[in-house]
């Protein structure tokens, strides 16, 4: 049989490629890039969460005139968000679903 040259396999691949069949979603991993890369990324996540928290707290404080209380609260929240970001870095939130 000349048809028996992996046609089904190619058809399945082509269908998957064009989205005819729903396919399992990819795990979506970032390139790991060694120890330094991981350390750098974790550092960036913590620092940016702190910046976001401090910035948000400072803005809301300036708006409401409650300096420095919300700033302090959001500083802590920023730190917590940084830890959360690092946690998400290694356990993406849609990985288990």
């Amino acid at each position: 049989m000349p048809e028996n040259d992996g046609f089904e396999e190619r058809l399945r691949k082509a269908r998957a490629r064009h989205g005819v069949d729903p396919k399992p979603s990819g795990s979506g991993q970032l390139p790991q890039g060694g120890t330094w890369g991981i350390g750098f990324r974790a550092g960036v996540e913590v620092v940016s969460a702190l910046i976001a928290g401090v910035g948000l707290g400072w803005l809301v404080d300036r708006w409401l005139g409650t300096w420095p209380w919300l700033f302090l609260v959001f500083f802590v929240l920023g730190g917590a968000a940084g830890v959360l970001n690092v946690y998400r870095l290694f356990n993406p939130r849609n990985a288990g679903k």
Binding site: R41, V44, E45, V47, S48, A49, I51, A52, G53, L56, F74, L77, G78, A80, A81, G82, L84, N85, R88
Partner: peptide, 20 residues
């Protein structure tokens, strides 16, 4: 506790993206 932390975490996305 969770909602403000999640909001700050969400807002930190563009910052971490640009800083990196």
């Amino acid at each position: 506790i969770i909602i403000p932390v999640e909001i700050v975490s969400y807002l930190s996305r563009p910052i971490s993206l640009s800083i990196r």
